[in-house]
């Protein structure tokens, strides 16, 4: 039985100019102990789909799916309070901006212990011990000391480690990592990726890796889903994706990597296919529009 199974997921946002479809009919499933990468550029709906699973979308979003089952339980049929018991305990998520994901008012230790109190009902001493154990697990040096640090006293890499500690605190069955290393330096990225994959193997979690970086995919994933503009373009295991990409889009993405450059020019996606014509492109995505 798959750990997470999603059939025909559609997410639309209610905007000033009518509904906008961010995810259009995505099917997805992940087995226990598997690393699945979801790749796409901005606007591909890769984060939105996972936020829908977590129930973290704003209330202007409409989520529809034929089935969205975690461990055999259909998440869409649960009451909000039942769902909260699963989300954060059996499924947990880490985000792109490690420093912004931690509450600046509380120490790292407090934030780890908060999860333990809420989901595991441990007493004070148990929580303390477990927090130290978790800090060790994610590779933070002198954990007793660090428990009392505030987020602004730590580097981005350390903050992301704390986020991972919080995420794995309740031994989740599924960990969703949304661009976990995009905001980090390359050398730190390597450490965090190794840590995530190491923890995944050690505890037999399912790991969903949302990323736009083909290098990250190549270094971590077992299986890959490529998304573009809210639709699934391709699904394949990692080796065949890189060896023999089936869809034009994947092929274009791979050839746009600077290290794959042939001669002086990089092939671009619009050189190859369906990128809208220049005039249409102008009226098109205005990302992060200034309000």
């Amino acid at each position: 039985m798959p750990l997470l199974e999603i059939k025909n997921l559609t997410v639309s946002f209610d905007t000033a100019a009518g509904p906008f479809m961010a995810v259009q009919g995505i099917d997805l499933s992940i087995e226990p102990r598997e690393v699945l990468a979801i790749v796409g550029e901005s606007g591909s709906g890769k984060s939105v789909a996972m936020l829908a699973v977590m129930g973290l979308l704003p209330n202007t979003a409409t989520v529809k799916a034929d089935r969205m089952a975690f461990d055999g339980v259909d998440l869409l049929e649960l009451s909000p309070s039942e769902r909260r018991k699963i989300v954060g305990k059996d499924i947990s998520m880490i985000f792109q901006e490690p420093i912004a994901s931690l509450n600046p008012c509380f120490t790292a230790g407090f934030q780890i212990e908060e999860v333990l109190r809420f989901h595991m009902g441990m007493d004070r001493a148990q929580r303390r011990a477990r927090a130290i154990e978790l800090m060790k697990l994610v590779g933070i040096a002198d954990p007793e000391e660090r428990l009392n640090s505030f987020p602004h006293q730590m580097s981005g890499g350390q903050c992301q480690r704390v986020m991972i500690a919080i995420a794995i605190a309740c031994n989740p069955k599924l960990l969703i990592a949304d661009e976990p290393t995009t905001a980090l330096d390359v050398t730190i990225q390597k450490q965090i990726l190794d840590l995530l994959v190491g923890l995944q193997a050690k505890y037999g979690m399912g790991l969903i890796m949302i990323t736009h970086n083909m290098g990250v995919v190549a270094e971590t994933a077992d299986r890959v889903i490529v998304q573009y503009k809210g639709r699934k373009m391709e699904e394949a295991d990692v080796l065949s994706l890189f060896e023999q990409p089936m869809s034009n889009y994947t092929r274009a993405l791979l050839s746009a990597l600077p290290e794959n450059a042939v001669g002086d020019r990089l092939p671009t996606i619009s050189d190859m296919l369906f990128e809208p014509a220049p005039s249409a492109a102008a009226t098109q995505p205005a990302t992060g529009a200034a309000p």
Partner: peptide, 17 residues
């Protein structure tokens, strides 16, 4: 990333003018 995605959602859905 999420912010960006949703913002893009809003922006691209609005007619120009």
């Amino acid at each position: 990333m999420t912010d960006q995605t949703t913002a893009e959602a809003t922006a691209s859905a609005i007619p120009t003018g």
